[in-house]
């Protein structure tokens, strides 16, 4: 920042200060959300604030302060890289959280995944029954191993590390 700035420099410094402080407040909001929200899913909602919007604000402050046009593409690439990786990791964490039941179902207004999981469990049970009927002449573990390993983890607790 320019010491004893006047004119346009003072305006740019003021805008930069606002961007930096609001970007830092995003981090504080995420921390408060982590401390106060009741379960994993709502904490994940709070955790995305500094990762996307907070990073955008502080990168915009850097671009304002550097005052070189070639800085902006680099900053945009850094931000887009974050935008690409954050949803993937959030998807994996949310999926693992749902499968290991780190959620309060009574706090959800709707649970669309529950119907899908139930349908997959019914389908797997049907395949298992059919497979055990036809697998009587074969070895005991011939038909059932594939059906157990490849299907979605149902509500009956038969989840491995891949479910």
């Amino acid at each position: 920042m320019t010491p004893n700035a006047t004119g346009a420099d003072a305006v740019i410094d003021a805008v930069t200060a606002v961007l930096l402080i609001v970007g830092a407040l995003m981090s504080l909001g995420a921390a408060i959300g982590l401390l106060r929200f009741p379960d994993l899913m709502s904490r994940m909602h709070a955790a995305t604030k500094p990762q996307v919007l907070g990073l955008f604000l502080v990168l915009a402050a850097i671009g304002l302060q550097m005052r070189e046009w070639w800085v902006w593409p680099i900053l945009v690439v850094a931000w887009i890289f974050q935008l690409l990786t954050v949803p993937v990791s959030a998807h994996m964490v949310g999926r693992a959280g749902y499968r290991t039941k780190h959620l309060h179902p009574e706090l959800l207004s709707t649970d669309e995944l529950e119907a899908v999981v139930l349908r997959a469990a019914v389908k797997r049970d049907a395949e298992k029954a059919e497979g055990s009927d036809s697998a009587i002449p074969r070895t005991a573990n011939g038909g059932n191993a594939g059906a157990n390993r490849g299907s979605v983890g149902g509500p009956d607790g038969s989840r491995g590390p891949s479910a």
Binding site: S27, A30, A31, L34, L40, R43, M44, A47, P50, Q51, S89, V93, A96, G97, T100, H102
Partner: peptide
């Protein structure tokens, strides 16, 4: 839980 810790480490 472990997933809470992972999420907080990300933050």
């Amino acid at each position: 839980s472990l997933l809470d810790r992972v999420l907080a480490a990300d933050v």
